[in-house]
Design a binder for these strands. Structure first.
Lengths: 226, 226
DNA sequence: ATACTTTTGTGCTTTATAACATGGTTGTAT
DNA sequence: ATACAACCATGTTATAAAGCACAAAAGTAT
């Protein structure tokens, strides 16, 4: 898993003083409440976003109202720029898992900077390339692995993305079973069921939405072998 | 569906005479036989490719030897540059469906041009953004639609990508049932079965690997409703 | 505190799809 | 022409996962 939290610093380093000034002048910080939509499928993209604080999910509504979480954002990570570059409306929606602060940068300004600063262009090319790779991997994982493998993978993904609490075992994000299901491409009942199976197998323990990883090796094996 | 066949001309237009000369000097054309691998999962990427003639599939091996076709390339389309930009090994393999001619451009040269020509950078940013959107759509389609929906979608995708023959109905690519299955995320038997169902429902007709679309509207409905 | 909604947990049933088995067909190499 | 391999077709069985029903628990609003 790539540590994308480096990206803010990275971008900042790429820019010169004048460019940083331009960004500062045009950036707006907005706060979003728990479960508030940041943008919706079909919206016209105007701004690029940088998550300063909180947690955000990017998702798509599929057939029959089932929603699929495509990726999850943590501070400090950029998102919401793909659609503008592709000259499309948003194909996904974004909403805040918890109260979040987002910095909005007008894409027009970004494109202007991009036209002058090649390093910034390389930054986006690399980021998009990494994300495309992740998406391709994800397609195969979600379609070919069985339920246990998909859930195990999601748990490991959450650990990679949001880390562990001070105890070194509890995943630092508390998701509803439904979100865990949408992340792992399964029904809520199956997420619940499979979680309890993992508990009986002493792979994890549960305390409400807190998930503690007991046997990470085993989780990795389950994730790998589908 | 985006017509990517415009991309060669597009790129060519972006470049100036000197840049075109550099490309010409460093480009190599290679021919690949039917079913020959162009690159493999795990290889280190060195060149970007442009398909001049033929048909190419990009695929990934999943768990249990099942392979998943990620995308298909037609002339004149670029491919194989993602991994280099992401600074990764190839996550996918590419092989020729039929005898194909591929033009190879060293990525080092491409990156050099990229550093000087911003329009070229924008070209890649846009292309990657479009592909990322397609990948996200695909994830949801492959995971949430039922077999009939997935197969219908694949058939429409093939029509969009490779077009129809002079009769205005026969899809201009002849795939083995297995490839159709790998494209639609199902087993070969189910691809065969579902195709015959479509025949009995007078949605398509079959003649070996030739697939004739009789009722495109119905195919679209099936694809949409999962 | 109370009622009310949402979320979680479990057992049971149904269904979609994979897996398997077998035979026919087509293509290909000798 | 013959043999052999790959591909296609179809029926049967097995199973993973969805769907449904209901109850308990937790969270939220009045």
């Amino acid at each position: 898993m790539v540590d994308l939290s480096a990206s803010l610093k990275e971008v900042w380093r790429i820019l010169d003083d004048k460019e940083r000034e331009i960004l500062r002048e045009n950036a707006v910080v907005r706060n979003f409440k728990r479960n508030e939509m940041i943008y919706s499928e079909g919206d016209a993209p105007t701004d690029m976003m940088c998550l300063l604080k909180g947690k955000v999910k990017i998702f798509k509504e599929g057939v029959g109202g089932r929603s699929q979480i495509i990726r999850m954002i943590k501070p400090v990570q950029y998102f919401g720029y793909r659609a503008y570059f592709a000259e499309e409306a948003y194909l996904t929606g974004a909403s805040a898992f918890e109260n979040s602060s987002v910095c909005l940068l007008p894409m027009k300004i970004v494109v202007e900077l991009l036209g002058k600063n090649n390093k910034l262009a390389f930054f986006f090319i690399k980021q998009l390339s990494i994300d495309l790779g992740i998406a391709d991997e994800r397609t195969v994982n979600l379609t070919q692995k069985h339920i246990r493998g998909r859930l195990a993978e999601s748990l490991l993904f959450l650990v990679d993305s949001y880390g562990l609490e001070e105890d070194g075992a509890t995943i630092s994000i508390y998701l509803a079973r439904e979100d865990l299901a949408n992340l792992s491409n399964m029904t809520t009942s199956n997420a619940i069921r499979t979680l309890s199976n993992f508990v009986s197998e002493r792979i994890i323990t549960l305390d409400g939405r807190k998930i503690k990883i007991i046997d990470e090796d085993r989780l990795r094996k389950i994730s790998k072998l589908g």
